[in-house]
Design a protein around this nucleic acid. Sequence first.
DNA 1: GATGAATGAGGATTCATTCAT
DNA 2: GATGAATGAATCCTCATTCAT
Lengths: 218, 218, 218, 218
Amino acid sequence: MSAERVQRGAVRLFADRGYAATGIRELGKAAGLNSATLYHYAGGKEDLLVRIMRSCLEELLRAATAAVDGSDDPRVQLARLIRAHVGLSALNPLTARVTDQEIRALTGANRQALLGLRDDYESIVGRVIERGVRTGQFDVADVRLAGLALLGMCNEVANWYRPDGRLTVGDVQDRFVEFAARVVGTAPATRAELGPDQEPVRLACEPVDPAVETRQVT
Amino acid sequence: MSAERVQRGAVRLFADRGYAATGIRELGKAAGLNSATLYHYAGGKEDLLVRIMRSCLEELLRAATAAVDGSDDPRVQLARLIRAHVGLSALNPLTARVTDQEIRALTGANRQALLGLRDDYESIVGRVIERGVRTGQFDVADVRLAGLALLGMCNEVANWYRPDGRLTVGDVQDRFVEFAARVVGTAPATRAELGPDQEPVRLACEPVDPAVETRQVT
Amino acid sequence: MSAERVQRGAVRLFADRGYAATGIRELGKAAGLNSATLYHYAGGKEDLLVRIMRSCLEELLRAATAAVDGSDDPRVQLARLIRAHVGLSALNPLTARVTDQEIRALTGANRQALLGLRDDYESIVGRVIERGVRTGQFDVADVRLAGLALLGMCNEVANWYRPDGRLTVGDVQDRFVEFAARVVGTAPATRAELGPDQEPVRLACEPVDPAVETRQVT
Amino acid sequence: MSAERVQRGAVRLFADRGYAATGIRELGKAAGLNSATLYHYAGGKEDLLVRIMRSCLEELLRAATAAVDGSDDPRVQLARLIRAHVGLSALNPLTARVTDQEIRALTGANRQALLGLRDDYESIVGRVIERGVRTGQFDVADVRLAGLALLGMCNEVANWYRPDGRLTVGDVQDRFVEFAARVVGTAPATRAELGPDQEPVRLACEPVDPAVETRQVT
DNA sequence: GATGAATGAGGATTCATTCAT
DNA sequence: GATGAATGAATCCTCATTCAT
């Protein structure tokens, strides 16, 4: 399908140069299309970006909801959230990077809608920490700050993870679950507690060979 | 001095819209200058960005070096590093954000030079963790990952800290020192161990009233 | 028949926005067709315009010829000409407007052909005035100017007449016959002199509900 | 002054091809400027058109007001109005044509504003006819229609008058004053009644050598 | 008879930059 | 030190048109 080829080319370029610095002709060339034809599939540059970001945020939100719904134990919920976030970011680093950095490029209703999705996700994380603190399982002085620290940690995974690097997605998930547990002052949930692993989803818009310059994990 | 007014206006706009999306006439207007006059002070758009980023990275590097030089104890070094990084980011959130996000906008030698500065800083952090692990004070399974987690946490401070928010710079520094200590599996250095506080530097290019849309800490 | 639906949609759009400002996709949408299908019926944008204008000018010419042929009395001929022109314009205001204003949009042979038709019509009017002056029935200082004044008066009917307004087509015809007679310094021909009324023709390309913004007669 | 050269070139092209069919690059070339430089002077294509049309309508309105203010006699007022309208159209045929035909090209507030000016002018004409009818000097069955006929006659002057043709501006004014008087059923005001002649204004935006294809008076 | 896909050319506008004043 | 004028190149996007299906 051609619409996906367009998106994949766009994600690579947006991740590399940034949305504003990427021209429509470049986007066309990356998809093997005339720049005019691109409008047939994508309907404008911002629409293209919106669709990419929306697919990423909606999947993140879906995965986060599933993570929280599967258990009542904040320790387990937190571990699953981290696994979901890290997994999605590591499996789709370019899409995740674009989604994280280019919200400012959106205008009007598009911006509001996607900011809303992002806020929805972040408040899921916040509520899990709150509950952990209430149950006494977590030990955090400032719930809001702890959430921001965790989100920061996870968000940046997309900036350095490389599929062809030293670490598998599972490795990074495991380590980050531990980091997160430590940040909130609890023991990481065990594999047994987590239940069957939720495979992170590979997004249709994520380029297959992310040969993009980035900080590589070695 | 007018060159500083130019930089401050530029930082605000770059942080808000991004470098590529900011026009040189906007930069001029923000500084109260004709766009042609701007070339007198800043000598082109990329030069302007380079100077901003260089001042930020050099200060970060200076502060990190000072942090490490003042002690041999990895716990103390880590705490001081975190305080420096968080302090600089929180006191200069717009500049820090631009510095973190716009390296990709640079070309040729400028890019290489600033990537070099960033790597220099990151390797200081890496070495401190390594030493902590070697001395047995830190408990980390993967040194590289721990460094990335800490850097991620700290880098994103610039994305949400607000001077007029609920928390002082010192508050955030204190909490993040604790988070960092937990991530590497150690106890945070006490105030006494840290010695006299190194005041974070307010950069000349940081706008005074950062009334810029961002995720606010509440 | 679909070709007529295409023409009707085109006339409305051309009359509203102008030929050059109307896109071929708009034309398609107005006819409920894909823009490619439109080529099947109309064979290109200019062809579409030519056919519209030609049908209007040919009808005008036909009606003018019939008006002149029916009598030898310049007073009667003039009255019939005016009735024909005003009737056609009022019954087909959108088509008439397009025909009057968009000759400049035509190229090459198309332009020459339609300019020819228009000139043919105008010289019929001119000859009637000339004859009236020669017979002493008309009192005009400058034949050419009188013709231009009459044509101007009648041409603009298409710019303000509204079928759903206060006046019927017949009303306007009657008044304009009187105006024209006065301009050339004669008494208007009576109904009896005119003979059986020639009903103005409703063109196939004229949209049925001319809900187009125009100066309304109130 | 360069801004006038821009306007003059624009008027010629707009009158010739129409606003929508005229490209910005053509406008630039006609003024001997790069298309980008044109924005320096004119600030966009629509702005350029608006300024042209406004100058024409404002002058028309000014002249009409002066015509009416100078006398209480509807016959005199009418004659002066016609002289003003015809004079302005004949002295500035290209500008007048553009002003008359391109209102539809305007958008939003621009359109409203200029439609307002046009309506103001037309209602001046309407009121003069009304008064003439009330005083019994004019003999018209339908005031509104008489006004439309007069306006139509005068408006089209811009479509055929040529400065280098057979007739002077004064000739056309004289004849049209007579036509108008006849249309409303009165005797034309004499030169003595009219008082000192109001010279029609040559607009700054009217091209000096109107070598533009048009119906020539011969 | 109808259409989605495709394209080169061109639409208006803004770009970063230079330079004479 | 400061600026208005100027420009070629680039911006995003729409144009009219063709053609395989």
